[in-house]
Design a binder for these strands. Structure first.
Lengths: 196, 196
DNA sequence: CAATTGTACATAACACTGTTATATTAAATA
DNA sequence: TATTTAATATAACAGTGTTATGTACAATTG
């Protein structure tokens, strides 16, 4: 990647991390990177190109968060650790999280390349959550299962960003989430347990 | 409410229903309502005021969706019907749904009045989901329980709006959701069942 | 009734957004 | 050396939400 291109991208990342989408204007990125506004268009596909890069960054963060060494852990332990990692990522990179889940700019739609990265991330999630299922489970079941856990996870994160979250005085939001998910995982394990 | 004020609000609602947030500019609302742009500021608090009204409309739709006659139904049946109603509302009023969950305009923040309506809606949800719990359950438990089901629900809706939703060829998204929620409800019922 | 006040309105402007046409400069190739 | 290509700078365009200014009409008051 070009050095100017990298400079633009890192400027965008910094502004995004500091102030979210509101701080990301074409002119502010250009100024921070020390280039002219037109540079955003010659090096990237305008603002959409910048957002695509951040979108991809976001899903790479998701993948990193749910993958790790799995030695000597039960399936439930592995999935619960992935869940912890997911929540930690959502807290540490709220801007990226909001972007990849459409809570930033309704005008932005990810490019095909960006969507491909998103699907790869979902593939990673399927692999992790499939540990809860019998080994001979088919793809449809694995997808259903991954979606189930992802929806539960994402629902907690998304609602935490919501105004109603303030009605909970206790700040143990993600503890409640992990409890509920643990219960759900037990239900999944019980449902598909191999009758021996 | 003033007749002009109603005309503005209904113009805004129509534009919003037809084209979502993208179709909602101060000038387009004014034109549709047959008033000057400044009218949006004299009758409402500018665009923020308009969005507040639509936000409140959205949560009223949520409340309507999860409330109905409950005669001769088990707790599980009532909650499952509320869940069906919730999904139906999210499909029929996607624009409102996206608005109240921050997927429309990141610059918009609901007013205190709008937030109060949101909390009332959450109260309704607590009342419905509390049917799954023992009658002597305390408020913290009821809140935890309502959040649990709401997160699961909302997660499915939010992910359906996401680009990754296209990896599921089968269009039975909400059937999968209802299945998963039914299983979770059973787990809740089992956990808090009165030992007799 | 006449005078004053206050409200609703229209026009225009401001500061901002993403994007692009035009012109200029520097670099690389023939 | 001459020509072509790439990167840059300036300015402009069409939008956005918002506001200042000026005007017309209605209501209230002396």
């Amino acid at each position: 990647m070009n050095i100017t291109k990298r400079k633009i991208l890192s400027a965008a990342s910094e502004l995004f991390l500091a102030g979210g989408i509101a701080a990301l204007s074409v002119r502010s990125i250009a100024k921070e990177a020390g280039v002219s506004t037109i540079g955003i268009y010659s090096h990237f596909n305008g603002k959409e190109g910048i957002l695509d890069e951040l979108y991809i960054q976001g899903f790479e963060l998701v993948m990193q968060a749910i993958q790790f060494e799995q030695e000597k852990l039960t399936a439930k332990q592995i999935v619960l650790r992935a869940i912890k990692g997911y929540f930690a990522m959502a807290e540490a990179h709220e801007g990226h999280y909001r972007l990849i889940f459409g809570e930033s700019d309704s005008r932005y739609a990810p490019s095909d390349e960006a969507k491909a990265v998103a699907e790869t991330a979902f593939g990673t999630l399927i692999k992790v959550t499939a540990l809860l299922l019998p080994q001979d489970a088919n793809l449809a079941l694995k997808q259903k299962n991954a979606l189930e856990i992802w929806a539960f996870l994402h629902g907690y994160v998304s609602l935490k960003h919501h105004a109603v979250a303030s009605v909970f005085q206790t700040p143990n939001w993600y503890s409640l989430a992990e409890e509920a998910l643990a219960m759900h995982i037990d239900a999944i394990l019980a449902k598909y347990a191999v009758q021996s």
